[in-house]
Design a protein around this nucleic acid. Sequence first.
DNA 1: GCGGATTCTCAACGAGCTCACAAGTTCGTC
DNA 2: GACGAACTTGTGAGCTCGTTGAGAATCCGC
Lengths: 248, 248
Amino acid sequence: MLRPRRDGAAAVDTGTVPTDHEPANVLIVEDEPSLVDILAITLRFHGFTAHTATTAAQAIDQAREHRPDLVLLDVMLPDGNGWQVCRDLRAEHDDISVIFLTARDSARDVVGGLTIGGDDYITKPFNVDEVIARVRAVLRRSAPTVPEPSVLAFADVELDETAYTVRRAGRPIDLTPTEFSLLRYLLVNADRIVTKDQILHHVWEYDFTPESTVVETYISYLRRKLDKHGPPLIVTRRGVGYGLRAPG
Amino acid sequence: MLRPRRDGAAAVDTGTVPTDHEPANVLIVEDEPSLVDILAITLRFHGFTAHTATTAAQAIDQAREHRPDLVLLDVMLPDGNGWQVCRDLRAEHDDISVIFLTARDSARDVVGGLTIGGDDYITKPFNVDEVIARVRAVLRRSAPTVPEPSVLAFADVELDETAYTVRRAGRPIDLTPTEFSLLRYLLVNADRIVTKDQILHHVWEYDFTPESTVVETYISYLRRKLDKHGPPLIVTRRGVGYGLRAPG
DNA sequence: GCGGATTCTCAACGAGCTCACAAGTTCGTC
DNA sequence: GACGAACTTGTGAGCTCGTTGAGAATCCGC
C-alpha cells in the first residue's frame, strides 16, 4: 500500500516566487523522463533555475556548464552509479550540495553514511512539497541566513513544524503524520480554497492516485480532532474544495 | 445530467484585449475540428495569438514555426499520445507551458503527476471562461509580475475568487458554485448588459443547451440572496438580457 | 513476530445542487 | 385598458458530492 510522505518536509507556499536574490541553480540527474519533468517543472515553479541530465556523463557536462548550487542525484543511473558521479562532482566543484534520490527500501542502509555533512536523501516516490522543502533546507544550511520561523498559525490553531506539534487554543492536539501534513497544507493556504486535486498532489506522493475518498476521509479525521475544541474551522466549498475560515 | 463547470476558473473579462505587451502565443493541439474552432475563436477574441494542430507531428512543426508560449494539448491524439508530444515540446523549447485537455473521468489519475509544478489540465467538456482563465493563470505564473488581486467588486458587492467568498456591504453571502460563477460573469461585465446566450455560453459548458429557463432561474436565485441585503443590483433589460446597475 | 497505530478502500446515507416545468406576474404595445 | 410576450419564482425530481463508520492491509516499535 502506498502512503503519504512527510518526514521532514516543511511547508511550501504555492505560487509565490522568491525575488530578493539570484535564484538557486539546481541540476536534476535522473534517468526516468517523467520524473525529470515533474522535478524540473516543480522547481521552476518555485523560483529555482533547473537543468537536467539523464546520464552520468551528461551530469558532469551540465555541472561544468551551469555550476549548480545543488544536485538532485538518482543513485541508479544507466551508465554509472550515483556515488561515482557524486564523488566526481565534489572533486570538481567546491561547495556543491547533493540530495540523493533513491528507492524506498534501499534508502536507509545504503545512503545513510554518505549524506553526512549537510546533504540529504529523498526516497521515491516522494511528494513535491517534500522535495522543495529539502532543497531549501540544504541550501539554507550551505548558505546560512536568518532562520525562518517554523510556526504556522491561523485563528487559535498553531502548528510547529520543527517540534511537530499542533495546538488549538493552547491545548495540544495529537495528529497522525498524514493529518499533520494536510493541516499544514491548509494553513499555508489559509486565505484560499484549495481543490482536492491540489491537496492530493501536495500532501500525497506524486504517483499516488486513490480510487477512493482519501482526502475526504482525512478532512473528516482532522475535523474530528480539531473542531472538537472550538467552532469549526475547516469549511467545504461544495464542488470546489476545502479551506480554513476564521469563526465569526 | 449536465452541470456547469467552475472548478478553479478565475474571472475573465470579455472583449478586452491586453495592450501593454506582445499578445501571448497559444498553440492548440486537438483532433476534433469543432473544438479547435471554439478554442481558437475564443482565444483570439481575448487577444491571444492562436495556431492550431490536429496531430502530434503537426504540433511539433507548428511549435517550431510559431514558438508558442503555451500549448493546449489534447492527451488523446490520433498519431501519438500527448505525453510524448509534451516531452518533445519541452525538450525542444525552454519555458513552454502546457495545459492538458482530457476526458473528465481520466483526469486525475492520468494527468496528475505532470501538472504539479504549475501547469494545468482542463477536463472536457469545459466552458470557455475556464479555458481563458487557466491560460492566463499559467502564463502569469511562468512570467511572474505583480500578483493580481483576486477580488472583483461592484457597488457594495465583493467577490473573492481564491477564497471563494462573496460579500455585500461586508456581510458574507453563501452562493452555490453556479450562482458564484454567474455573479462573477456579471461582475466582470459590470458596465454592460449581457444576453442570456452569452451567459449560457460563459457560465455553462460549451455543449450545454437547456430546454428551459436555467438562466432566469439562477438570476432569480442570485437576486434572492444578493438583493435581500440592499437595493436591487441586478437589472433586466427586457428582450435583451441582464446586467448590474449601481443603485442611485 | 506480535500488537497497536496508521493508512486507505468501500459503501451507505443524506444534504445540497441543478434543472425542468408550470403557474403567476410584469411589461410593452396597440 | 387589453393582450401577448417576456420574465419571475415556487415546487419537486433526480442526481452528485461530501460525510462517516467499518474493516482490511500495512507499518513500526518492542
